[in-house]
Each structure stands twice: as structure tokens, then as C-alpha cells.
Amino acid sequence: MNGLSDELLIDPAILRIAAPILLVIFLATLVIVVIKLIRGPSILDRMIANDVFLATLLCGLGAFIAATGRVDLLPVLLAVAALGFVGSVSVSRYVSRSDTSSPVVGETRSMAQAHTLSMAQRRDQEEAQRQRSSRAGSADGPDDAEAGRPAGAETVGPLFAEEQEQS
């Protein structure tokens, strides 16, 4: 960086006063944002601090470009401005999905809840059927096994049907 003062765009007399002010402000901002990034109570606060960190980085890079006239750094600005939102969007998706009680991933929440509901209903039906068969007679064990097998096949069947409907 030899001869940087020759390439300065702004008058060096002004920049000698303004550059320390800018530097102090940006450093204080980054320190406060990193403190917030460390002790933010939730992950969403950390994502907001991350966004502010990126915005401060953009502003500092813009100030550097305006002061020194390094036009070759403008594509960096462009890339950060275009892609800076990806982190907060993906983390927000992750956070707002994690409050579902179902372990099913990739389906909508109502779909997963309907599935759990139907499974509970089917379990109740099997329970009633088993109680009915045990009440009818305790001697016919093979009949009980025969009643158990189609119920199990039924629990598998609608799952595949659902997947085929979705695809």
C-alpha cells in the first residue's frame, strides 16, 4: 500500500480529521454487535446481530471505497448485498419449524398432525377389536393372529398412498 495518500480521492486535510472518527465509530459498532452476538438470549437475536454486522461491514467497505477510490472492491459489496439475507432466512425457517411436536420433516404441520390423529384412531380401533375378540372367546388364538395381520398391513398402506399423492 505504498503511495496510498497519492490515490486518495478526498482532500487529506479533511480525511485526517474524519478517518479516526469513522474508525472509532465502526470499531465501537462492531464491538457492541459482537457482544450482542455472544449474549443474545435467543438465536433470532443473534441473527439480527448478524444482519447488523453485515450492514456495518457493507458501510465500512463503502466508506473505504469512497475514501480511497478502489473501484475494484465494488463487486464484493454487490455480492454481500445480494447474498447477505440467506443466513437469517435459513435460520428463521429452522427456528419456526422446530416448534412442531412431530418428528416428521418435509411435510406441512397440518399433514403431520392429521397423520398422528389417524394413527391414534387406528390404534383405538385395534384396541377395540382386540377387546372384542378377547371378549368373544379366549380359545381361538389363530383368529386373533389373523385379525392382527390385516390391521398391521393397513397401518402401512395409507402412508405409501399419501406419499404417492404428494409426488
Partner: peptide, 17 residues
Amino acid sequence: FMIGGALLSLAASIGLL
């Protein structure tokens, strides 16, 4: 303008805190 932008960043960080 540059000092104004820097002060906005500082205000955002203080508001964040």
C-alpha cells in the same frame, strides 16, 4: 454522508443492546 452512515450503524448496535 459517511459519518452519518457510521452513526446509523452505531445507533443500530446500541438499539440492539
